[in-house]
Simulated assay, not measured.
Amino acid sequence: MKIDPKNGLAQLLFGMKTNDVVAQLGLPNRQFQDEDGNTIYLYDSHKLRLTFYADEDFRLGYAITSHADATLLGHAIIGEPITKILEALPFSSWETEEFDSVTNYFNESNWLTLQVEYGQVIRVEIGALIDEVSDVFIWRFKG
């Protein structure tokens, strides 16, 4: 599963609606509404959590995966040492946040979070970008 910063992951592009995603992946194993009214789809076999933003006409705006086959810019990511990943990626600016046994590495310019436990990446989160001038989401899906 290719993680494509600023665009989406695999065949999913930021801006797709639920019916577009279902056409690609089929029905989710589970779906629910979060506290903000967003629709969340969970796909077990893809180890994938997708968020469709309620205030953006339920467009895909955020994705989380822990799938073993996930790649980021050609690098295997899940289960890899964070030191190896940080050296391999071209991103230089990372904010870190620690809680309990987990450390999050966040790169704002790509809206990318690498979640690390015991020195290894366990999860990747990626979100749609917001245009700095117009303050609106940059939707990659034009359908």
Rank of each mutant, 00 (worst) to 15 (best):
T103K: 11
N7L: 08
S101L: 10
R49L: 14
I64T: 15
Y105C: 11
F141C: 03
A63W: 01
F99N: 09
P28G: 03
S92N: 13
E35G: 09
E56R: 01
R49N: 06
P90F: 10
I130V: 15
L12T: 00
G26K: 00
L42F: 14
E95H: 07
S92M: 07
L48H: 02
F52T: 02
G74I: 06
L13S: 14
F91C: 14
T71A: 12
F91K: 15
Y62G: 02
D131Q: 03
S66C: 01
L129R: 04
T18L: 09
D55M: 03
F106I: 10
Q115P: 05
D34K: 02
E117G: 09
T96N: 04
G8W: 00
T103V: 13
L114E: 09
E98P: 04
F91R: 09
I82Q: 06
T113E: 07
E98I: 08
I122L: 03
A88F: 04
K142P: 02
G74Q: 13
I64H: 04
D44C: 05
T18V: 11
H46Q: 13
L13C: 09
Y118W: 10
Y105G: 06
F91S: 04
I78G: 00
I82K: 04
L86M: 11
E108Y: 08
S109R: 09
V124I: 15
W94Y: 11
V124Y: 11
Q24V: 08
T51R: 11
D55Y: 07
Q24C: 09
K2Q: 14
T18H: 06
T65A: 01
V121L: 07
Q24M: 05
G37H: 05
G26N: 05
T96V: 06
E125S: 14
S92K: 14
F32H: 13
L50V: 13
A68S: 14
G143P: 05
V102I: 12
S109M: 08
E97R: 10
F58K: 01
V116W: 10
Q115V: 10
S45P: 04
I126F: 01
E125K: 14
I122G: 11
L42V: 15
E80Q: 15
A70G: 04
R49Q: 15
V121Q: 07
S92H: 10
H46K: 15
L48P: 03
S101P: 02
D44H: 09
V102C: 03
D69S: 15
G119R: 07
S66G: 12
E35R: 13
A10C: 02
G8N: 01
T65G: 02
F14I: 01
K142I: 03
E132K: 12
I40C: 02
G8L: 01
Q115H: 09
I85T: 11
W111Q: 14
F99I: 07
Y105M: 07
D34F: 10
P28K: 05
L112G: 06
L9E: 00
L72V: 08
L12I: 08
S45Q: 10
L73H: 08
H67L: 06
L114F: 06
A70L: 01
I3C: 02
T71K: 09
D100M: 07
R30K: 15
Y53L: 12
W111A: 14
